[in-house]
């Protein structure tokens, strides 16, 4: 399985040391007057909290790439459901393992550009603001039209892509987004209007069922 999230051991150990050092200052504040006081304070209140928050940020950023993270919001439940619908593009990719199942949303909804990962994080913050502070569109709309670049990143040059009728003649149109891949390959998700609003009216958690992993050799 793709390891997306580093182990929590370093977080636990750093937090334990940080808490013990801070507790020492809590119970013996007079130690600040000792010659080593400022150095100990710098470790307890600057270095260790910095390390703990850095490691925590890394873990949260790694977790934000997972399918479970995306589907933790009710607005996304209808879209998560389509991962199990073999008629949708999302479902085909999920069922056939064209995308890693533990990072299904992130794999297709991140731009394959130099700053694609950073842009995805910024959009993720917009999602958080919309989730906690506003009301999302129903159905949810992308901030900008889906670029063929994300499809071609994996599909262009593959045998099945090259052999498909019409792909060879139109490849330049695909590259320049003059013709969308979704013109023929649809629906991307197939979520109907009203589904998002309905999903936000219940509190149940969405869980993807465990799919068979396939036979061994």
């Amino acid at each position: 399985m793709l390891e997306l999230v580093p182990g929590p051991l370093i977080s636990i150990v750093a937090t334990l040391i940080g808490v013990l050092l801070a507790a020492d200052f809590f119970f013996r504040p007079a130690r600040a007057r000792q010659s080593t006081g400022p150095l100990a304070a710098a470790v307890a209140f600057i270095a260790l909290p910095g390390l703990i928050l850095s490691v925590g940020s890394e873990r949260h950023i790694s977790q934000s790439k997972t399918t479970a993270f995306c589907l933790s919001c009710h607005e996304m439940h209808p879209y998560g459901s389509t991962l199990l619908d073999p008629e949708s593009i999302a479902g085909k990719h999920f069922a056939n393992r064209y995308v890693p199942r533990e990072a299904a949303c992130y794999t297709c909804h991140t731009e394959y550009t130099m700053y694609g990962g950073l842009n995805a994080k910024m959009k993720g913050l917009q999602h958080l603001i919309a989730h906690y502070g506003g009301s999302p569109d129903d159905p949810i709309k992308l901030y900008e039209p889906y670029s063929n670049r994300e499809c071609l990143h994996c599909h262009e040059g593959s045998m099945s892509f090259d052999e498909a009728i019409g792909h060879g003649d139109e490849i330049e149109s695909f590259r320049t987004n003059q013709v969308s891949c979704l013109k023929c390959h649809k629906p991307a998700h197939g979520v109907e209007a009203g589904a998002v609003t309905e999903s936000m009216q219940h509190t149940r958690e969405f869980e993807l069922p465990v799919l068979p992993t396939g036979g061994g050799h």
Binding site: S11, I12, T15, G18, V19
Partner: peptide
């Protein structure tokens, strides 16, 4: 620090 750890 404990909240930060628990949130992970």
């Amino acid at each position: 620090e404990l909240i930060a750890l628990a949130s992970q």
